[in-house]
Computed example of a mutant assay.
Amino acid sequence: MFLKSFGSVVVAITFLVSSTAIAQTNNNRLAFHVQVGSDDDGNPIILDAGSVQGSEYTILQKQGNGIAKTTFRAACGEGRLFSETSSVYNADGQLMSEKQTKQEITPQPGTPEANSMEIVCQTAKNDISQ
């Protein structure tokens, strides 16, 4: 397991082939991470479930020796997904770059973007119906 702290965010990445979910407490807050896919090298791509606020959320993936963090906003009722920001952190957890992406993407079934959107939208739907 690869654990790295980025400020108040704990990133947990498990190097397993199967789907994984990891829960960890951090500063009295539960951090919950779900593997939503893998990159071309087999490294996991993780949904940071603790980042979900309505239909906005973050996915994390290994990039070189660091971590890439992308924030998305889903328009669940319309089936649309928007990339909001992209950040890269080095191995020490320092922010190396950040940019506003503000673009619509078309998530293809089975991709990390589509898988994470499905989880977030289903959770939002369940929250509304309760």
Rank of each mutant, 00 (worst) to 15 (best):
Q63D: 13
K102S: 15
K99F: 05
C76D: 12
A114M: 10
D92R: 12
P109N: 10
E98K: 11
S86F: 00
Q108T: 12
Q94T: 11
S97W: 03
Q103G: 07
N65V: 06
T101H: 02
T111C: 04
A74S: 15
S83A: 15
G66A: 07
R73N: 13
I67S: 01
Y89D: 03
R80A: 08
T71C: 07
Q94H: 08
G93R: 01
Q94G: 05
L81S: 02
G77A: 09
G79M: 08
K102H: 11
P112F: 03
S86A: 10
S87K: 12
T71V: 14
S86D: 12
T71H: 07
K99C: 05
Q63S: 10
I67T: 15
E104D: 03
A75Y: 12
A68V: 03
N90D: 15
A68H: 01
L95R: 08
P107H: 04
T85H: 03
Y89Q: 05
L95I: 05
R80K: 13
G66K: 07
G110V: 09
F72N: 01
A68K: 02
L95N: 06
L95K: 08
A74T: 02
T106F: 09
A74I: 01
I67V: 13
E104Y: 06
E78L: 10
S87I: 00
T111D: 02
G93P: 01
E98T: 13
N90G: 08
T101C: 04
Q63Y: 07
R73L: 14
E104P: 04
Q63L: 05
G77E: 07
T85D: 15
Q108R: 11
I105Q: 09
P112H: 02
T106L: 06
C76E: 08
G110Y: 05
A74M: 04
C76F: 09
I105N: 13
S87V: 00
K69N: 08
A68Y: 00
P109R: 10
S83E: 15
R73H: 14
T101P: 02
A114Q: 03
T70I: 05
E113G: 00
E78Q: 15
Y89S: 06
Q108C: 03
T70M: 09
G77R: 08
T70R: 09
Q100H: 12
P112E: 02
M96L: 14
P107M: 05
Q100G: 09
Y89K: 05
Q108V: 15
R73S: 15
K99P: 00
T111N: 02
L81D: 00
S97G: 04
K69E: 13
T71A: 12
D92Y: 08
G64V: 05
K102Y: 07
Q100A: 11
L95D: 06
E113F: 04
V88C: 01
Q100R: 14
